[in-house]
Amino acid sequence: MRIGVVTFPGSLDDGDAQRAVRLAGGEPVPLWHADSGDTLLHGLDGVILPGGFSYGDYLRCGAIARFSPVMGAIIPAAQAGLPVLGICNGFQVLCESHLLPGALVRNDHQQFLCRDQLLRIERTDTAWTSDFTPGQEVLIALKNGEGGYVADEATLDELEAEGRVVARYLEVNPNGSRRDIAGVSNARGNVVGLMPHPEHCVEAGFGPSLDGLPFFTSVLRQAVLA
């Protein structure tokens, strides 16, 4: 099972995402931001857009990455059903790419925040969450400056109605996200954006838990079934 992990200039958690894929039993395949072409994603069972500050994010987060050559290949593949997980900056890139609705804005308290965050997994029929049980509570590392999920009320209602809220913050809303939303998916469930960092929760002794691992085993299992 091969999962591509994109490195943009300024990606920071690309190595961690590769490690998480490896520990979940898959083979990580590095993808370079400047690469493109029809064959780039051949043989890949999924793609991860990792955390970081792509191209410095001096403009709106993810706004430049969305126009990178590699995204030129990923966007149509995602629309065609390739599993894609965007973590933190990757979530921002997915929103900028219009693969997911809404946007991520500066935390309401105006500070970068790193904490161990309790989440509830709300949807387990996506490519990236099928190994969780519905309603499962998990502890995942969270770290962001611009993690407030916003969308208009109609879109939020639609996400709720269609069961596309993948994960919600519990106990503390760390960034002012509307309706405590920590992650959403597209209608088909192959594209997931997540603000917390499951790739930091895959190894005993490093990170607050092992609760991140099912995100990565889910997509590998789905690839086996497919």
Binding site: R19, Q111, F112, K143, H197
Partner: peptide, 11 residues
């Protein structure tokens, strides 16, 4: 909490 202590996964 304003510092990332997790990045690189080796902490």
């Amino acid at each position: 909490q304003q510092y990332d202590r997790y990045v690189r996964g080796n902490t």
